[in-house]
């Protein structure tokens, strides 16, 4: 298996990816801020086990302040200014807003985690470029190199998210997750009725057929677990994006659970938009001047950084572990 990462944006500007990621993340967190501000003044959502809220006032205005801080980081990122700092800044304030929402709602919003994970991967890719190419990576000349690594990092994190979802099911329930009740339970406990006759017929078809329900559970595991092929190449990525879209449309129709964030992000990253819109090709002057930057090696600093992140994630007394 080749580790080569092919992208529809190779040889083209990745500005649409950078701006698109910032805009989608901004819209998602605007919605999150609205949700948190609404929940903060609603007694139905009193936090049961406050963590962050021991230090923060549970007032709606603070949600908008946090969103403002997130937006500043995303705007700098979109305009390609101080990108590593701006990305890290945005992620930090997003984490505060996300944690606050978790304490109010009771569970984390995974809708927020998809753009968050891709933004995290984008920043890790930028850090990788900075480590490899030094200050040259952050110059206009270094943009093609740093954004090729940023794109790879972003796609890596969303692929890992889907694979992680399949692994979570297998770790908790084993292959027993593929059973006749799993999907039927989800539909009945979420949205057993529907306003449109065709939608009601669709839901009933699954509720009344254990075999169809079993097949749906199996397909869910295959599509999520197979999402590492998002990293194989442009055609694989496009094909698997289509499969993930089918999965999310299925979830949306059956349970009214919209996951528009990963759907739009995958559409942005996987479809060969530069070719469809006949965008001009660009040079990579930094790689032409310093061909050694193309060596497919992993710098020691990155090894250490990723290992520290993993160790901290396992030992830190934070995180929501329930389903």
């Amino acid at each position: 298996m080749s580790l080569v990462y092919r992208s529809p944006y190779d040889g083209h500007s990745r500005t649409p990816l950078r701006v698109g990621l910032a805009v989608i993340a901004g819209v998602v967190f605007l919605d999150a801020a609205f949700e948190v501000a609404s929940m903060a003044k609603d007694p139905h959502f009193a936090p049961r086990a406050p963590g962050l809220l021991r230090f923060l006032p549970n007032t709606p205005a603070l949600a908008w302040v946090l969103f403002g801080l997130v937006a500043v980081g995303l705007i700098f990122l979109a305009f390609d200014r101080f990108v590593i700092t701006a990305g890290a800044w945005a992620i930090g304030w997003m984490a505060v807003l996300s944690q606050w929402r978790t304490e109010l709602f009771g569970t984390p919003s995974r809708n927020c985690f998809f753009p968050g994970a891709m933004l995290f991967g984008w920043v890790l890719g930028l850090v990788w470029a900075r480590v490899v190419a030094g200050r040259d990576a952050l110059t206009p000349e270094g943009r093609p190199l740093r954004e090729s690594l940023a794109e790879a990092g972003a796609m890596a994190c969303i692929a890992a998210g889907y694979v992680g979802s399949a692994l979570s099911k297998l770790f908790v329930s084993g292959f027993g997750w593929v059973n006749p009740s799993q999907i039927r339970w989800l539909v009945l406990s979420q949205e057993p009725l529907a306003s449109f006759p065709w939608l009601l017929a669709y839901r009933r078809a699954l509720i009344e057929s254990p075999d169809l329900a079993r097949l749906s559970a199996f397909a869910t595991l295959v599509i999520e677990g197979g999402s590492f092929v998002l990293l194989f190449g442009a055609r694989w990525r496009l094909a698997w994006t289509a499969a993930i879209w089918v999965l999310h449309l299925h979830i949306l129709l059956l349970c009214t659970m919209p996951y528009l964030e990963p759907m739009s992000l995958l559409l942005l990253f996987a479809v060969p938009w530069p070719r469809l819109f006949r965008r001009p090709r660009i040079e990579d002057p930094l790689l032409a001047r310093r061909p050694e930057l193309g060596q497919p090696t992993m710098p020691d600093v990155i090894w250490i950084l990723l290992c520290v992140m993993i160790v901290l994630a396992w030992i830190a007394p934070v995180g929501f572990r329930a389903g």
Binding site: I91, T102, P108, F113, A117, C157, G164, L312, A313, V318
Partner: peptide
């Protein structure tokens, strides 16, 4: 890292509905 922390933004094991129904 996500397997370790469970869910802490931006890391998530995306374990919603992972338990057997």
């Amino acid at each position: 890292a996500a397997r370790g922390v469970g869910n802490f933004f931006p890391l998530s094991a995306f374990g919603m509905y992972a338990g057997r129904s």
